[in-house]
Design a protein around this nucleic acid. Structure first.
Length: 213
DNA sequence: CACCAGGCAAGTA
DNA sequence: TACTTGCATGGT
């Protein structure tokens, strides 16, 4: 239990306000976004998603109908188009098979079951799995990304290169089990990490206090 | 010009 | 288990 974690959330919330993630019209669009945004800027992902909308491929079923070359051209602006074509297809299959089986309210054991199910999908790692659980299904799992690791290293003096599961456990043990909070906090960390963000230093002024507490 | 962006899988030591 | 590399485009 690290009280500083919640303090960071309060500071970021005061600085940026609620983020209202994930920016998308439907759960499947969220799911598609989690794959397309892997190591890719969101502005590029928006172009790709607009391409799918222009093709009338707004569902997983419709995406799977697209020819190889068509789907590659749609993905192209978001990069890695050959790899992401395969990943998007495998995630679409998982989505069709499982979207209606995931319960709205879930025990921690059930969440782990669906997390493992997602990790078995080609192209889904820990962060993408947690993004799908949190932002598609509103299940309380905390998303860790490179920004989160960087932030706890810089501002809380934690080890750099912490393993995903260890850092995730620290966050989840230090925060109330609250989907809206998990949703907002991860989005706030991203907002605070964006290049050219003018408020980026909002944690710097209090970093000593946070580390020494 | 270099560097980064809401990672992952596959290969090597 | 713990690194390293390829993947691709668009913005700064």
């Amino acid at each position: 239990m690290d009280k500083r974690i919640y303090q960071v959330y309060e500071l970021l919330l005061a600085e940026y306000g609620h983020q209202n993630w994930w920016p998308a019209d439907t759960p499947w669009e969220v799911c598609m976004g989690t794959v397309l945004t892997q190591n890719t800027s969101w502005t590029n992902v928006e172009k790709a998603i607009d391409n799918f909308k222009a093709l009338g491929a707004m569902s997983a079923e419709e995406v799977l109908q697209l020819e190889d070359q068509v789907i590659e051209e749609a993905i192209r602006p978001s990069g890695y188009y050959r790899i992401k074509k395969k990943r998007l297809r495998s995630v679409a299959h998982w989505w069709i098979d499982n979207r209606d089986k995931v319960p709205a309210g879930c025990s921690d054991e059930e969440i782990q079951h669906w997390r493992h199910s997602l990790l078995d999908v080609h192209g889904v790692g820990e962060e993408t799995a947690d993004c799908i659980l949190l932002y598609c299904f509103n299940l309380p799992t905390f998303v860790i990304d490179t920004y989160t690791k960087r932030m706890v290293h810089r501002h809380l003096g934690m080890k750099a290169n912490m393993k995903y599961g260890k850092l995730q456990r620290i966050f989840m043990e230090s925060l109330p089990r609250d989907v809206a909070l998990f949703n907002d906090f991860h989005a706030l960390i991203v907002a605070n990490s964006k290049v050219g963000c003018p408020n980026k230093k909002c944690l710097d002024n209090c970093s000593l206090r946070l580390i020494n507490e």
